[in-house]
Nucleic acid binder design. Structure first.
Ligand SMILES: [Zn+2]
Ligand SMILES: [Zn+2]
Ligand SMILES: [Zn+2]
Ligand SMILES: [Zn+2]
Lengths: 171, 171
DNA sequence: GGTTATATGATATATTATAACTTATAAAAA
DNA sequence: TTTTTATAAGTTATAATATATCATATAACC
């Protein structure tokens, strides 16, 4: 394994086993609320609820799975309800869409605008969000060399997380 | 604009305006046929036809658009026909799927296994495939630092190509 | 030739996402 | 404080993308 350098952040790590996830959610919601207030965005009860549901899974969640959960309290919810909330949050950087999974995750660092960088474990399906400046810069540098103005970049890496590759090695 | 270095390749460039596209297609098909022969894969007439249709668009094409084209000569074709062919080629690196577009493009360099790296112009919808080792290495280095075995990486960059950003600048 | 594996045909259905119109609520203007 | 305007949410319908399953054909192998 290589070494981590400063400037390299893991926004949402693998294996969120023993953290206080209730607190984790409420912090994320509070951060989102603050962010919306600062930016004049309306953080409605519906949006709050959708964001809570996204965070409560603490991993990628599909729109229709989200819809099912939403219906527990809002029996009448329909697809546009959830898609609108998702679009709103994606537009403002509070949720990322993982293209290769058709799924959504809460962003752990919405204040700092960035493209999504994800490590997706093909075995345990866990997902880690990165915010690796070296990767982002390599992309921008290359685009720039071609006269391409990069506005939004997405990096999705499929492989095996340390826990899952360890299991085989050890097992 | 930055400078290109050796090792940096643009596999499929923007603006394939004045190239002999008939030849471009037939070269790609010939390369695919050779590749399949070498690797004991059966390059059936149906698969050939699907690959030709993918290349003939010289850009990303959707599965159902492909199906429509296929039906010109195979009136009975159904979705699984085209998805199977696409899956076959994707599995063997001859076609890439662009996740953010739900679309497919022929790979310009199947012999060298690589993840897809795409610059997608939001205005003219053209797509350039890169094979930038610096980007790929930055991804692998970071994954490695986290004990993540990267197996497949996808990079999709949305922005504006030089032609489209030039149009605005020039008026 | 008989067996096995692979590929394709054909039908049905699952999954993901959006269009379009209506009603409710909030913000701004008069 | 009414009126107006903009934004958000409810509702119905449908579009777009992808897969499951079973039947048939073709190719590879023995
Ligand atoms: Zn948590
Ligand atoms: Zn993020
Ligand atoms: Zn794992
Ligand atoms: Zn390629």
């Amino acid at each position: 394994m290589g070494r981590l350098k400063k400037d390299d952040k893991v926004i949402v790590p693998f294996q969120p086993d023993r953290h206080d996830h209730g607190q984790c959610i409420s912090e994320a919601i509070a951060a989102a609320e603050t962010y919306c207030k600062k930016n004049g965005l309306s953080f409605t009860p519906l949006r709050r609820q959708v964001l809570e549901l996204v965070w409560s899974s603490h991993g990628p969640i599909g729109a229709y799975e989200l819809l099912d959960k939403l219906r527990v309290s809002r029996g009448n919810a329909e697809p546009p309800t959830v898609y609108r909330a998702l679009d709103f949050f994606i537009e403002h950087g509070l949720i990322h869409r993982i293209e290769s999974l058709n799924a959504y995750v809460g962003c752990g660092d919405p204040a700092r605008r960035h493209g999504g960088q994800f490590l997706i474990c093909r075995d345990c399906k866990s997902v880690a969000e990165l915010d690796d400046i070296a990767i982002a810069r390599a992309v921008i540098r290359r685009a720039d060399a071609l006269g391409f103005e990069a506005e939004q970049q997405t990096v999705e890496v499929v492989g095996r997380c340390s826990a899952c590759s360890g299991e085989i090695k050890n097992g």
